[in-house]
């Protein structure tokens, strides 16, 4: 295949950045998108130019490290597919492909296609856990959990934390990410004791980090490589109202 690439190059956080054109020939349809970038980088290094910096690790669609906006869509054109799992057979010979980082206010661009997503870790630190001391757990089968509840928790837990949802959202909202983690933990009996605390604290950290509000565009779900459902956001909104009222009563009482 023959392709024209327009790739975002930016030296560091302070640089203003620009799209740079590259021509690629002889690309195999079986090669993955990142392998195509590997080849481009090889040719840049051979010429003594600096290769394009981009994040990747597992290349299996599970670590959440890769974070490319391809032709305007986070992770590119294929549904339920991370950029690393995207293959060149999804593109047409002669096509022009634009490659940019995951853009959003709370994520600064570190270099080229690499962004800083540490705000996601902060949200988890605010309450995305069940407090259990190592070694103090009861037998795994002590509390039966219905298959449907456990499947629901697993659906929510499948999030890979890649932040495509934020990059796709006009408001830079992190509601899909946050609501999925809260739904996983709050739906399980083990997570119930800290339910309200977890929810309020994670939501407030989300706001503090500068993520915007959710106004139900649904773009987040459309680009999510794991198909995380927007129903989790609806649940969060409902539970948030309840938890806030309870919290308010507690402070008054």
């Amino acid at each position: 295949m023959r392709l024209k690439l327009k790739v975002w190059r930016q030296k560091d956080q302070l640089d203003s950045g620009r799209l740079v054109d590259y021509q690629m020939d002889n690309i195999s349809e079986d090669s993955s998108f990142l392998e195509m970038l590997d080849l481009l980088n090889e040719s840049l290094v051979e010429k003594g130019d600096e290769p394009i910096a981009f994040d990747h690790d597992c290349r299996e669609g599970i670590c959440g490290m890769c974070s490319l906006t391809i032709n305007g869509i986070p992770h590119g054109p294929e549904k339920l597919t991370t950029a690393c799992q995207l293959h060149m057979r999804s593109f047409k010979n002669g096509e022009t492909i634009t490659i940019e980082p995951f853009r959003s206010k709370p994520f600064k661009i570190t270099k080229d296609l690499i962004v800083d997503r540490s705000a996601f870790d902060k949200i988890i630190e605010a309450g995305g856990f069940i407090s259990v001391r190592t070694g103090s757990a009861p037998d795994g089968n002590a509390i039966p959990i219905s298959k449907s509840d456990s499947d629901y928790a697993m659906d929510a837990a499948a999030c890979i934390g890649c932040a495509a949802c934020v990059a796709a959202c006009k408001n830079s909202s992190a509601m899909l990410f946050t609501s999925a983690k809260i739904s996983q933990l709050n739906s399980l009996p083990q997570g119930k004791p800290e339910k309200d605390r977890r929810l309020l604290s994670m939501v407030s950290e989300m706001d503090r980090s500068g993520f915007g509000n959710c106004t139900n565009y649904g773009e987040c779900h459309a680009v999510c490589p794991k198909g995380i459902s927007v129903d989790f956001i609806a649940n969060l909104n409902r539970d948030y109202a309840k938890a806030s009222v309870k919290n308010l009563l507690k402070t008054i009482g």
Partner: peptide
């Protein structure tokens, strides 16, 4: 330990 942390093992 993992069940207590909320790891959604298959059931």
């Amino acid at each position: 330990q993992c069940v207590a942390q909320g790891v959604p093992f298959a059931r």
